[in-house]
Design a protein around this nucleic acid. Structure first.
Length: 943
RNA sequence: GUCGGGGUGGCGAAAUUGGCAAACGCACAGCACUUAAGAUGCUGCGCCGCAAGGCUUGCGGGUUCAAGUCCCGCCCCCGACACCA
């Protein structure tokens, strides 16, 4: 008999299967039950697959082969997530088009996969960088845009200085770029943003019904971060101060924007109306400077029109208002658009009549006055979000985040503007990591001249700006309750603020402990007026109601920053027209193809390299046909993977992203396998897109992936994560050539539980190699008999049952060990029947497809084992007549005897007491009772 | 800190959900085969003990005839989030 030579065997069957196109194809027709088994498709990197990647793919391959043998029509496709930075960076360095790099890498990946014997239906192969594919990625984006789910904003976002692109929140890990590890900075860039927050509640709610690992579900819930609480308004109390309003008037006399400026003005500023002249007024200069800083207007474009005088905004209060009016010099009007003004949170006022003489100013004056009295100009309220409305009586100060809009340009009218500005600036300059890695020492600055009125106690509370309050969450402002919030407590300690306990854990004991830290638990209320004695949980709603607050829900989830300032991604299919604004590219003109460029180098200016390609950028407005420009940002790599599982269903469809009937037949994905690192990236984004597609009727299920499993990491032999830089990467090609693909597959499955991490240990692979060699030798022994003895038969059927159940549950390690046990027994048999050998080969087939095929044919079979029916166990054959009766005395095992199944308690007791070993322990003792567990054990209790 | 997952021989790990702890494999030791090495096969292999037997699933308690498994308290490791009000 020939020696087991994996190279010859595997080459033979690899070639044979390649010719048999139907073997692994998933037909769209037919009556077989369907199953969709999906791997997270890989990014085809230049390094190729390593043994860590192939764990998940091996598992889904085993599972798919198993299901096919069980009569399922199995959709098991593969494709390439090929947009993204590595190909682009390679292109920059070597001056090759990224598409060429991708092609080469894909070919290599394909070769590696074929070598391992994966049974993908390659007729459905997809590639996200294929224009025929990304046409539909762009199409989905357009549908979102049309429904108001995509918006443009110039916002400070996370920016990776190394990748030279903006990043989504989800792509920042510990303040570093998820991809390259570079420290992320804040940068203000024009961005397209997707309103994923609009789906927050549904994304959260539907997690419950998913058959996913608990840890991934928890991560998603956590990331969405729902909290229910109350929004409560605090009135502001201003100390004496003077406000100034700037107004900008265009040549038509329309007031475009206005702004209050405040500060303590000395008497010399209180000029009578019209008396200030440009030359001698510091105030005008200050105003000009301010406008220049805060708007896109330049000082040279403005001319001073006049001064409207001062007035008391409210009777009896000492607030003064000054109104300065600036005009725009000719031809500059279009530079300020009301929208811009609104974004800057400036108030826009409706147009004034053509003639702006004194009466006009008087009217404007009246309007401004009106605004003042209605609170539209001066902020008189501040909203806070709290989950502990029950502690409102204990709120002793109020804190604003440095990003709070009311601090911009000082709309609060505080006195120490300079000091506050400096603090705000400092906070904004801090990178994420600085704000978190510092020892968390609380910092902040008191806002002088303004106080917040506690709506419950009517006390005037000091206000602060402090960076422990986050601008992006809630309202960006909090009521601080130092007695019941540790962070507030720390801040209060540092700034010497009162700590007022209002929730007592040991009510009605009147004594509340002197706090060393905040008491954050529940209890009964004290010091809370009419609410005293109420349970804190109840008090939440009661107090909220009493102060006119509203119960609200807040989420941590932020909208998805969707623009990338890079070349190698899907162009965002929008056109910017000076007349029509942002216009979507008509669907018939999709895809908007990436142009060929000379340099892929990112600009780092917040513009994509596409912006430099005049020919591509310049286009016609689809609406008015006038000259317009293309959007030059590209989509993030996640875009293509948000819906790829749908394209496999109908990869060549030119009219739709997938045919509705096919979608219904295959979806949802029944088994999805991939790395846990995508917990809040791909898996959240894809769910979001899927729900959107559900809403517009493109898909029929609310969720894309019903069952999800994460393969464990394969660590390098050093126990470290495999990476090129560590030099601990194991290439599957090397293992395939040295040990064989079957050995690699089985070893990876045998190393430990599928979802556990494990270190690669080449020493142990020999065990699997021995198993494979023995299987080869034992099964191909020519001598044969009709039927084995019943004990062997029982083991065979037990093994069939065990392997079947284990594959269903992805317990591949124990399935393999069961096959080992069976093989050990087969070896002991002098002869084996063809039937039992066939059964063994079938069990082996999903795990070691090459070997199984090699062994299958000499047993007298012409067709592939991979098209065969999975063996079934016979429950009757498994049922044993005898079992090992465990005999315990006082709960300790003293003997084990053979007994017939169904033995009565009486007989079991007799058998137990007859045992010599048992007698030793019962001699001279009183038998109190015996516990009998049917077909298992008897436990004799003696005293 | 919060959430999630864990802690079992020298190592990777099993244990039908409360019923013989350590299946299967690696490593190791002995034996057989061999001139020899390797490969292969057989035997042994949690700890203490010559043995009878005793002890053993991170630690401490509890429930039970019986606990790796259930309950209470604690320690440690891994992962995620992290000043989210």
């Amino acid at each position: 008999m020939a020696r087991y030579d994996h190279n010859t065997i595997e080459k033979r069957w690899r070639n044979a299967w390649a010719k048999n196109k139907k073997l692994y194809a998933a037909p769209d027709t037919g009556k077989k039950p369907r199953a969709y088994v999906l791997d997270m498709f890989p990014y085809p990197s230049g390094e190729g697959l390593h043994v860590g990647h192939t764990v998940g793919e091996t598992a889904t391959d085993i599972y798919s082969r198993f299901l096919r043998m069980n009569g399922y029509n199995v959709l098991h496709p593969m494709g390439w997530d090929a947009f993204g930075l590595p190909a682009e960076n390679y292109a920059i360095k070597h001056k090759v088009h990224p598409a060429k790099v991708v092609k080469k890498n894909v070919a290599n990946f394909r070769k590696q996969m074929d070598a391992i014997g994966f049974s993908y239906d390659w007729s459905r192969e997809i590639n996200t960088t294929d224009p025929g594919y990304y046409k539909w990625t762009q199409w989905i984006f357009l549908q979102m845009f049309k429904r108001g789910l995509a918006y443009e904003a110039e916002a400070p976002i996370n920016f990776c200085p190394s990748c030279k692109t903006g990043l989504a929140n989800e792509e920042v890990v510990d303040g570093k770029c998820e991809r390259c590890g570079t420290q992320v900075i804040r940068k203000k860039i024009r961005q397209w943003i997707l309103k994923i927050t609009q789906y927050a509640e549904r994304l959260l709610h539907d997690v419950d019904a998913l058959d996913w690992p608990e840890r991934i579900k928890a991560m998603q819930r956590n990331w969405i971060g729902k909290s229910e609480g109350a929004q409560v308004d605090f009135k502001l109390h201003h100390e004496r101060q003077t406000h100034t309003v700037f107004a900008i008037v265009n040549e038509k006399g329309e007031v475009l924007i206005e702004k209050r400026k405040s500060g303590r003005f000395e008497g010399k500023w209180l000029f009578p109306a019209g008396k200030i002249e440009e030359d001698d007024s510091n105030m005008v200069r200050a105003a000009l400077r301010e406008i220049g800083e805060e708007t896109s207007l330049r000082q040279e474009d403005l001319e001073y029109r006049g001064f409207l005088g001062h007035f008391h905004s409210r009777p009896g209060e000492k607030e003064n208002m000054l109104l300065l009016v600036f005009g725009l010099k000719n031809g500059k009007a279009s530079r300020v658009q009301p929208k811009t003004a609104a974004e800057l949170r400036w108030q826009s006022v409706r147009a004034l009549p053509e003639d702006h003489g004194d009466e006009v100013f008087a009217e404007m004056f009246a309007r401004v006055k009106n605004h003042v009295s209605t609170g539209h100009i001066f902020s008189s309220l501040i909203s806070v979000f709290t989950t502990r409305a029950d502690t409102l009586f204990g709120a002793t100060y109020v804190v604003l985040a440095p990003e709070h809009p009311l601090l911009e340009g000082n709309t609060l009218g505080i006195e120490n503007v300079q000091e506050v500005r400096e603090y705000v600036q400092q906070a904004k300059n801090k990178s994420e990591i600085e704000r978190t890695s510092e020892a968390r020492e609380k910092t902040g600055v008191r806002l002088k001249g303004v106080q917040a009125v506690n709506p419950a106690t009517k006390e005037k509370l000091p206000m602060f700006v402090a960076d422990y309050v986050l601008g992006g969450y809630g309202t960006g402002a909090i009521m601080a309750v130092p007695a019941h919030d540790q962070r507030d407590f720390e801040f209060a300690q540092k700034f010497g603020l009162p700590v007022k306990m209002v929730v007592c854990p040991n009510y009605p004991e009147p004594i509340c402990p002197i706090l060393e830290k905040a008491y954050e638990g529940a209890g009964h209320l004290v010091g809370s007026g009419t609410f005293d004695g109420m349970e804190s949980e109840k008090a939440k709603t009661a107090i909220t109601k009493s102060v006119g607050g509203t119960t609200t829900v807040k989420y941590k989830l932020r909208d998805w920053i969707f623009s990338r300032q890079r070349y190698w991604g899907e162009p965002i299919p929008l056109v910017k027209c000076p007349r029509c604004g942002v216009v979507p590219v008509p669907e018939k003109d999709l895809p908007v193809k990436l142009p060929t460029v000379a340099s892929y180098e990112p600009t780092g200016t917040g513009e994509s390299p596409l912006a430099a390609i005049e020919k591509w950028v310049r286009t016609k407005c689809p609406k008015c046909k006038g000259p317009a420009k293309r959007e030059t940002n590209t989509m993030p790599q996640w875009a293509g993977s948000c819906w790829y599982y749908l394209r496999y269903l109908d990869p060549k469809n030119k009219k739709k992203l997938a045919d509705a009937k096919k979608e219904k037949q295959w979806m949802p994905v029944g088994m999805y396998v991939g790395g846990a690192e995508h917990a809040v990236l791909h898996l959240l984004y894809a769910r979001f897109w899927h729900k959107f597609l559900y809403d517009i009727g493109v898909v029929s299920t609310k969720e894309p992936f019903q069952k999800l499993l994460n393969q464990g990491l394969i660590l390098g032999p050093d126990g470290q994560k495999m990476s090129k830089s560590r030099g601990n990467v194991i290439n599957p090609d090397d293992i395939v050539s040295a040990y064989g693909a079957d050995v690699l597959r089985m070893y990876e499955m045998f190393m430990g539980p599928f979802e556990d991490n494990k270190a690669w240990d080449i020493k142990s692979i020999i065990g699997i190699r021995r198993f494979v060699e023995r299987a080869y030798r034992i099964i191909s022994k020519p001598a044969s008999l009709k039927k084995e003895n019943s004990e062997f038969e029982r083991l065979l059927h037990k093994t069939i049952k065990k392997v079947t159940e284990d594959i269903e549950q992805f317990h591949f390690n124990t399935a393999i060990s069961a096959m080992m046990v069976l093989l050990n027994e087969m070896e002991k048999q002098n002869q084996l029947s063809v039937a039992s050998r066939e059964s063994f080969v079938k069990l082996l087939a999903p795990f070691a497809p090459f070997l199984a095929e090699e062994l299958w044919r000499p047993l007298g079979n012409k067709k592939s084992v991979h098209g065969e029916a999975w063996p079934k166990h016979d429950p009757k054959l498994i049922a044993e007549e005898e079992f090992d009766l465990v005999i315990q005395v006082n709960g300790r095992v003293r003997d084990v005897v053979k007994a017939h199944k169904g033995i009565s308690e009486q007989n079991a007791r007799m058998a137990a007491l007859q045992s010599e070993k048992v007698k030793k322990f019962t001699e001279g003792k009183e038998i109190k009772k015996a516990i009998f567990v049917k077909d298992r054990l008897i436990n004799v209790i003696v005293i």
